[in-house]
């Protein structure tokens, strides 16, 4: 019998999100005999269902209700549990995205099954699964196994899996919603932009960023001086902006700004995935870190293993001389 894998499609503003296609791709790779079912929750989403049926889903299950127009944890939990009850999949894959990490544990608790979260890869066979997930914010790969559970549940990191690259001729089916809109414990209100100051790093051509390794707010001057010498802007990891050493608008990454300067210099930044997604398309990446195993060296073009307080001032001095 085929291995039935249910994936949760995500969409916003009338378009499917990339994670949906990545989950379809990973579901096909996860098992040699995968039968991939996409679950689509929304309101007026028939075009999206047709797209999923072409781009990797063998079957698409659509649940439509005005209460599903926007994401809410309670409505999604309710309909995902209902779909799992009626479809009885071997495995359920959800994105490790803001909505995915919100709803996945509620579903896991509802089913009393374990959840492997933040996975880059998953292999499913005979009711068991092997997953490679990140720990210590990407400094390590944590291999976990789920043995003999139904369904297997995992969340997949965004950008980790290649999208399905083929064409399918899937079928589309509708399931009646079972939720009672009057009884939802969580309700969507609105989506809005967070406030930010005037700085816009997205257009900068040179960025020098500091991370937790800088150690203290006053020591950021070392980074600022290199930025000035290179004619660039000052960026930061979340560790720096959360600590209040710099305003939020300097934060680069998934929950900050995405940048692609000609030159990006990362100082005392480990290279967590949430930081890397915001700067990996930079033209040339320099990393300075005292830990030779820091993940930032995996994506940098050139690196120096050492104390930033020795390397950065030397670089600043020579950059000034080079400019004349």
């Amino acid at each position: 019998m085929a291995t039935k894998i249910l994936i949760l499609a995500e969409h916003s503003s009338g378009a499917l999100k990339d994670i949906s296609f990545e989950l379809l791709g990973e579901a096909h790779r996860a098992s040699a005999d995968a039968h991939v079912v996409a679950l689509l929750l929304g309101n007026g989403v028939s075009e999206l269902a047709a797209e999923l049926a072409k781009k990797g889903a063998s079957e698409v299950i659509v649940v439509e209700s005005p209460a599903l127009e926007n994401y809410s944890s309670d409505a999604y939990r309710h309909e995902i549990l209902a779909a799992i009850a009626s479809e009885d999949p071997d495995a359920v894959l959800i994105g490790n995205t803001p909505n995915g990490w919100d709803v996945a544990p509620l579903v896991a608790a509802g089913l009393m099954v374990p959840l492997a979260s933040g996975c880059a890869r998953i292999a499913i066979a005979d009711g068991s699964a092997k997953c490679a997930r990140k720990a210590f914010n990407g400094k390590f790969v944590h291999h976990v196994e789920i043995v003999d559970q139904r369904p297997i549940m995992a969340t997949m990191d965004k950008g980790a899996a290649a999208p399905f690259d083929g064409e399918t001729d899937g079928s589309v089916r509708t399931l009646e919603p079972t939720l009672d809109p009057g009884k939802l414990k969580s309700r969507f209100v609105e989506t809005k932009k967070s406030e930010s100051g005037g700085l816009d790093l997205s257009q900068a051509s040179v960025i020098v960023s500091g991370g937790r390794g800088v150690g203290a707010p006053e020591k950021l001057d070392v980074i600022r001086e290199l930025a000035d010498a290179l004619g660039g802007q000052l960026g930061a990891s979340r560790a720096v902006t959360d600590a209040g050493w710099l305003p939020h608008e300097h934060q680069i990454g998934s929950s900050g700004v995405t940048v692609s300067p000609k030159l990006y210099v990362a100082c005392g930044i480990s290279g967590a995935i949430q930081h890397v997604v915001g700067m990996k398309s930079s033209g040339y990446i320099v990393a300075i870190n005292k830990d030779p195993d820091a993940p930032i060296f995996g994506i940098a073009d050139v690196g120096v293993v050492g104390d930033l307080f020795e390397i950065v001032p030397a670089l600043t001095k020579q950059a000034k001389e080079a400019k004349g």
Partner: peptide, 10 residues
């Protein structure tokens, strides 16, 4: 992501 917030009532 990308400096967006989702407002919900619980």
């Amino acid at each position: 992501e990308n400096n967006e917030l989702q407002v919900v009532d619980l």
